[in-house]
Design a protein around this nucleic acid. Structure first.
Lengths: 117, 117
DNA sequence: CTGCATCCAATCGGATACTG
DNA sequence: CAGTATCCGATTGGATGCAG
């Protein structure tokens, strides 16, 4: 696999390219939630409580630009926006699922403790 | 999946934990190369030509510390060091392979052009 | 409600120089 | 040959304030 260029950015392997599209802290968690149903911005915000709205907004915007998610704006007051996963986004779900399961295995191996709550 | 703590660092989901172990620019390419055989530092350096030796050294060190790779030092002059994948590292290979194939699919979809050489 | 602007802190990665 | 030390720029992510 030779190097290649996309959007004026240099990549060295397919994994690097994939991670540029669905990597980062929030994109996979977002796609994972959109797997089964539409979500509103505020619902995602509540679910991904550790994400600032700026980061959430940024991740969603890129996912929409790259065609993994569609955005629907309802001209109401107050405004309502719904995010839906696309076919391209659905193709990422098995990858995310495998990464999830692998992460769960690793957690076992490293004997991670869960905090009391 | 609740949040959890490991090595004084907070994680929010299994994917995030997995990526903290095998993510970053160089770890997967390294593991992928070690899949079938031992590699010397200089061989990895030559193969991952875009990685500075500092970055390569850093990634290898973390992979060794986390038990994905073992390091064997031969007391010769000049010194020789060989890196070998462990069982834990082998478990990452199917994940990397899936991510690779997914990346290749995405490259097709996005119709990435390869530079002339 | 949805999200952008601005500013800032932390992390990541590159360049260079140097050592056992 | 196989790294480490140092310095620096780029990128990522958080906090706050504000706007349609």
């Amino acid at each position: 696999m030779p190097d290649f260029v996309k959007d004026n950015h240099l990549f060295h392997n397919p994994v690097e390219f994939a991670m540029s599209k669905i990597g980062g802290t929030y994109k996979m968690p977002i796609l994972w939630r959109l797997k089964d149903k539409k979500w509103r911005f505020s619902e995602l915000q509540k679910s991904l409580s550790h994400a600032s709205d700026r980061m959430l907004s940024k991740a969603l915007k890129e996912l929409v630009e790259d065609g993994f998610v569609t955005k629907e704006i309802f001209p109401e007051v107050p405004p309502r926006v719904e995010y839906t996963i696309t076919d391209r986004g659905q193709k990422a779900i098995p990858v995310i699922e495998m990464l999830r399961n692998y992460g769960l295995d690793l957690l076992q191996e490293f004997e991670v403790e869960h905090p009391k709550r």
